[in-house]
Nucleic acid binder design. Structure first.
Lengths: 232, 232
DNA sequence: ACCCCTTGTCGAACACTGTTCGTTGACGAA
DNA sequence: TTCGTCAACGAACAGTGTTCGACAAGGGGT
């Protein structure tokens, strides 16, 4: 845990005098998030979870937006960070982002908030610093490393959101994989004369192997990075 | 224009008997979207734009989600699609997605809806079919092409969302680039003993050259694809 | 020409949302 | 003991997506 915080997070220096605290609020929000997703997370319900009124939350948290940022950073805290080893920069980068992806998936929708605002909380910063150290140690030029941080982060978050949506739709349906099957069927039933490729490859287009698809995308990105690293 | 539509879009076969129409609604929504973003797009305001009551919209559109999907597909309609040429598959792929990115950016926030639901509207399908044709013609294996379609689409949408947020924050501020400067400043002012790399490369981390960053990310991805294409 | 009945329009209402206001009441310092 | 501060919180405000039910206008069948 680091005590660095973005300047727009309301500072909470005073020890709480009563029952509520920022931590308790984030805890309650996290519980709701896992159960219902970002959509079902309202200030009233968080307050209800804590057995208090909604207005009370605003003494500890400026905003719903701020609460979501705190929540996101709490989730990022669970990503294990490796000790950078220049010999294994590629593997370590791969593992770091795979772990981040997994942590996001463990918490429903939460990746949405990463796409709505660049994550600059203390734990996101620790992760960024580690990722930069690994890439720079591996010989990736600074500008490429800095930009790649953004690009890969974007991809990881977007993937997590997509996977969370699929998981949610599957949960609502009867059988596991029902949603992916429906998408594949939709592709397969398109008019073949107009969409020959989509029809022909409908199976691959909708194949629900989330992890394999994620690793494929991450490999695509890191292949580009490795090429940059070798050039210098 | 293609007349293929996902089965869950309410079919509107009958010619409109009165003033309202699906097209008019999407037009009004598009106008609002450009002016205020997805956030400021409510059914009431769309209805107000058309001088009618909010309930009237539901005769032409199942719900707000469907309206957003229609809106997204309308935006995708503006992406110019090249005639596939196997000799130039890499360039064509690059150009196609750059054009898609630009079309999204021209319409504020709209990329958000692509991340909230896999886009399967008629124009998104035409774009997908073209992208597949180009990649397959260039020798990319089918499964890699199918997965890359998803991965690159995710990246393009996520980039567009991030850029739209930056653009919005800059618009709110006094000077152009104010937001990026603030982020760079935040990085630069971090405690150097804890975040040495982030502090050292704060300039690159927040550099606001949107297009260059986007092209960099797209290159990273396509480098991975090109490696796959050569392998076969 | 008549009537019916389908179908688009739309005001009102419902159940929510995030946030603010003003009051209450308990604690720590003097 | 008294005072002032501040977390707690009920109520209200302005907004949201959506549904219901009433209304009216045309076209099709008789």
């Amino acid at each position: 845990m680091s005590d660095v915080e973005p300047p727009w997070w309301t500072p909470r220096k005073t020890t709480t005098r009563r029952s509520l605290s920022r931590e308790a609020i984030v805890d309650a929000a996290l519980k709701l998030l896992r159960a219902e997703g970002v959509e079902g997370l309202s200030m009233r319900r968080v307050a209800g979870e804590l057995g208090t009124g909604q207005a009370s939350l605003y003494a500890h948290v400026a905003n719903k937006d701020e609460l979501l940022e705190l929540l996101f950073d709490r989730v990022v805290a669970d990503v294990p960070l490796p000790e950078p080893d220049p010999q294994r920069w590629y593997e370590q980068t791969f593992e770091l982002w795979t772990a981040a992806h997994a942590a996001l998936l463990r918490n429903g929708d939460i990746a949405r908030v990463a796409l709505a605002r660049v994550p600059l909380g203390p734990n996101a910063l620790r992760l960024s610093e580690t990722a930069m150290t690994i890439m720079l140690g591996g010989g990736v030029p600074p500008r490429a490393a800095a930009w790649a941080l953004d690009v890969v982060g974007l991809f990881v978050s977007a993937s997590a959101v997509e996977d969370a949506i699929g998981a949610e739709l599957n949960k609502r349906g009867r059988d596991p994989g029902e949603y992916y099957a429906a998408v594949a069927g939709y592709f397969a039933d398109l008019p073949a004369e107009r969409f020959p490729r989509l029809v022909e490859h409908s199976a691959e287009l909708a194949s629900g192997e989330r992890d394999a698809r994620f690793r494929f995308g991450l490999s695509m990105l890191l292949a580009g990075l490795a090429a940059q690293a070798r050039r210098d």
